[in-house]
């Protein structure tokens, strides 16, 4: 009942008042007021053929910095709330094996995971690097690259049973790395102060090269920051969720 009421309340204004422009109307204000400027000037001003990247990490880079910070915030929130008080160990998958119905070996167990995973992982990482450094030219960018790197770690931890993992990050370390990413982003902006620019004004970076190149350097630097932040956050959330959840800690 409440939900129906909510839907009615939200839809009535849109029906009663004609507030939204027609879909795809080239003359509508969103398609003509600032969009024209971005389309005409993005390549000259930001040296980025990909207009989306130009808007995200150059014209509106300040927003993206805080969006990356939101990722970091989500990571440490999960650590604090979910993994705050580990009490008991999670029952390991081995405990359930006895009860499982074994009607022959399932097809996926015939794959040699050690071989497969060690083949796939480098490929995923190379692809992540491609997505990261080509973000300003074609589709892609820091968020996707970070997700790919985080997924590689996740795959490694979840699929392969190793006595000694290749890379073992504690939830503390991964959260610290997740913070380092947005910090690189913020630092890129702060370095612009040295060249006498405003915050995130890439063409005032203190290197002695052409302005367009400076924009490329700035965009790449913040994309690297975003990548580290996202990868760290994914690993942090994984680490936090692997610990026991317990809320019997009312200290109030």
């Amino acid at each position: 009942m409440t939900i129906i009421m909510l839907i009615v309340v939200i839809t009535v204004p849109f029906i009663a008042f004609d507030v939204l422009p027609a879909i795809g109307d080239p003359e509508s204000p969103p398609n003509s007021h600032v969009s024209d400027y971005y389309i005409e000037h993005a390549i000259d001003e930001c040296n980025s053929p990909n207009m989306v990247t130009a808007v995200i990490v150059d014209y509106r880079a300040f927003d993206t910095m805080f969006e990356t910070t939101v990722m970091f915030l989500a990571g440490i929130s999960v650590v604090l709330i979910m993994a705050n008080k580990p009490r008991r160990r999670i029952p390991s998958p081995g405990d359930f094996k006895r009860t499982r119905n074994t009607g022959g070996t399932p097809i996926y167990q015939t794959i040699n995971k050690d071989v497969m995973i060690s083949t796939i992982e480098p490929l995923i990482l190379i692809y992540a690097m491609y997505v990261l450094f080509h973000g300003e030219v074609s589709l892609g960018g820091g968020f996707q690259a970070g997700a790919l790197i985080g997924m590689t770690y996740l795959l490694d931890v979840m699929a392969v049973k190793r006595d000694k993992p290749i890379m073992n990050l504690t939830k503390f370390m991964s959260a610290a790395i997740a913070g380092l990413g947005p910090f690189i982003y913020a630092l890129t902006g702060i370095i612009c102060f040295i060249g006498g620019g405003l915050y995130l004004q890439y063409n005032k970076l203190p290197f002695n090269i052409h302005e367009a190149e400076l924009h490329s350097i700035g965009i790449t630097a913040v994309e690297i920051g975003v990548t580290i932040g996202v990868a760290g956050t994914i690993i942090t959330i994984l680490n936090a969720l692997r610990e026991r959840i317990s809320f019997d800690d009312d200290n109030d």
Partner: peptide, 20 residues
């Protein structure tokens, strides 16, 4: 964006006050 940062950090700080 700032509203989001404010609210998310507030959710977390409130959740840190025990089970209630």
């Amino acid at each position: 964006v700032f509203l989001e940062i404010t609210s998310l950090s507030a959710y977390c700080l409130i959740a840190m006050g025990g089970s209630k």
